[in-house]
Design a protein around this nucleic acid. Structure first.
Length: 317
DNA sequence: GCATGTCAAGTTGTG
DNA sequence: CACAACTTGACATGC
């Protein structure tokens, strides 16, 4: 069965994640900073509970958690650790409650660090900051039971093969909580499925296939071929495959950039229809777009199935 | 109240 | 060479 996933935010449901700017936080002394940040983290952890409840309520099977759940966590000047916050105990308990809920509802949770997180840069300070960001997101992933932290290949720096080599070296040295969740995704201007398949193969990590990026940045593979290669990378590991879909706001001619409000039914690959896989829907109308596509594909609302006798769930994260 | 500009970070391609 | 584009929205500021 296919499950469609919602990315980070809601259109209709009154669920919001709070943020703060470093400029404002810096004006406070350290204890006040931690009080303020602690409030934001607790509010956001509670909003995550609400998000998981809402996703379940409307029949969506996966949710991508927004990266700044803990605002400014890895900021070089005002960054902090969970245990430094006055609300640490409550925040932790709330995130563990998220995990119980996602188990109960059989949801899939994931992270997608933004474009600043990349492991191919020749600049050590960029890599250091990225590793710190991955550490942070892995800590959250462990607490809430997310099985995916998905990143792009990063830059090319005029020489793709040495960039890929740096990427491989960094990934193979990752701490286990990150490495066992890390996935690579083809992007819309540098790294294609064709570029990433050998890397994922060598490192035994899965490949997230974004068909919109593939259409913007083709590599000679057909959608069917790219789908097959990506499926294999997940199935070798015994894990549920992961894809992304979106439609361009201004059509396919030229370089399509911004995401449309909804998914155009004809952009959804036929090859995906019968799979057991997660498809994140990247569309501005958020849960409305997920539900509309779900309906157009004649998929039933996602709901937990009763456990099958003899079925062993211990490998689930 | 409401409109508008700002926000930590990297890299690439455009104008 | 500056700046928009990448998953956009929330917040601060100023009227």
């Amino acid at each position: 069965m296919l499950r469609l996933g919602l990315c980070c935010l809601f259109n209709q449901a009154p669920i919001h994640f709070r943020s703060a700017t470093a400029k404002v936080i810096k004006k406070l002394d350290r204890p006040d900073q931690l009080v303020r940040l602690g409030e934001l983290c607790l509010d956001n952890a509670r909003s995550l509970i609400a998000a998981v409840e809402e996703v379940h309520r409307v029949g969506i099977g996966a949710f991508r958690v927004s990266s700044p759940l803990f605002p400014l966590y890895t900021h070089p000047e005002v960054g902090y650790r969970l245990e430094d916050l006055p609300t640490a105990v409550e925040v932790t308990a709330t995130l563990i409650a998220v995990k119980s809920l996602k188990d109960k509802y059989q949801l899939r949770l994931s992270f997608h660090p933004d474009q600043f997180t990349l492991l191919s840069s020749p600049r050590p300070e960029v890599t250091t900051a990225s590793l710190e960001e991955l550490d942070y997101q892995a800590m959250l992933a462990v607490l809430i039971g997310a099985d995916v932290i998905n990143i792009h290949g990063g830059g090319v720096y005029g020489d793709k093969s040495s960039a890929l080599l740096r990427l491989e070296n960094q990934i193979s040295a990752l701490p286990e909580p990150i490495r066992e969740r890390l996935t690579l995704e083809n992007d819309d201007h540098s790294y294609t499925v064709k570029d990433l398949v050998p890397v994922c193969d060598k490192l035994s990590i899965p490949l997230v296939y974004d068909v919109h990026h593939h259409r913007c940045n083709p590599d000679g593979l057909t959608v069917a071929e790219a789908t097959k290669a990506c499926l294999l990378s997940w199935r070798k590991l015994g894990r549920e495959p992961y894809f992304h879909i979106s439609s361009p706001k201004y059509g396919w001619h030229g370089k399509p950039r911004p995401h449309a409000d909804f998914i155009d039914r004809s952009d959804f690959p036929r090859e995906w229809q019968q799979l057991d896989a997660t498809i994140d829907v990247e569309a501005k109308a958020k849960e409305l777009a997920v539900l509309k596509l779900q309906k157009e594909l004649a998929l039933p609302p996602w709901q937990p199935t009763s456990p099958r006798p003899g079925h062993n769930d211990t490998e689930e994260m």
